[in-house]
C-alpha cells in the first residue's frame, strides 16, 4: 500500500476512535445502558447510530454518482440472509450483551490498558480464528 493511502487510513482510524470516545461508546456501562431496555434505558447509542448511519448513507449515495475509474466502491447488492448470518449475529449479540464490548470499543479499551479488554481482545482473536478455521467465514 502506498504511504499516502496508509496515512489517510490512519486519519480514518483516528476519526473513528475520536467518535467512539466523544460519543461515550468506549464505556461498556453506556452500551449496557442502551441494551437494558427494561431498566434505566440510555438512548445514547441510538443517537450515535443515527448520526453514523445518516452520514455514511448520504455519503455513499453521493459517491455512487461520481464517475471516476479510480474510485472503487463496495457492491450495493447485499449477501443472502443465510443461516451463518443469523446464527453468527445471534452469537455476537450474546457476547455483546454479556460484556458490553463490540470489537471497536474493545480495541479502544485495549489501548487504555483496561483489564477487561486485556482478556476480552485475545479471547475475541481466538473466536475469530475458530470461525475462520472451521466455518470458512471470510
Amino acid at each position: 500500500m502506498k504511504a499516502g493511502k496508509m496515512i489517510l487510513f490512519f486519519v480514518a482510524g483516528g476519526l473513528f476512535g475520536t467518535g467512539l470516545a466523544i460519543s461515550g461508546m468506549t464505556d461498556p456501562a453506556r452500551v449496557i445502558g442502551f441494551l437494558d431496555l427494561f431498566g434505566a434505558w440510555d438512548p445514547a447509542l441510538l443517537f450515535v447510530m443515527a448520526g453514523a448511519v445518516g452520514v455514511y448513507g448520504l455519503g455513499m449515495l453521493m459517491l455512487r454518482r461520481v464517475k471516476n475509474r479510480d474510485l472503487k466502491l463496495p457492491s450495493p447488492t447485499p449477501s443472502p440472509i443465510d443461516r451463518q448470518l443469523i446464527v453468527g449475529s445471534a452469537i455476537f449479540g450474546v457476547g455483546w450483551g454479556l460484556g458490553g464490548f463490540c470489537p471497536g470499543p474493545a480495541l479502544a479499551n485495549l489501548g487504555a490498558l483496561r483489564v477487561e479488554a486485556l482478556l476480552f481482545v485475545p479471547a475475541m482473536a481466538i473466536g475469530m480464528f475458530l470461525a475462520q478455521r472451521f466455518f470458512g467465514a471470510d
Partner: peptide, 15 residues
C-alpha cells in the same frame, strides 16, 4: 469478559 470476547470474535466473523 473472556467468554464474551470469544463469542464476539466468533459471532462477528460467522455473521
Amino acid at each position: 469478559m473472556a467468554i464474551a470476547g470469544l463469542l464476539v470474535g466468533f459471532g462477528t466473523r460467522l455473521g
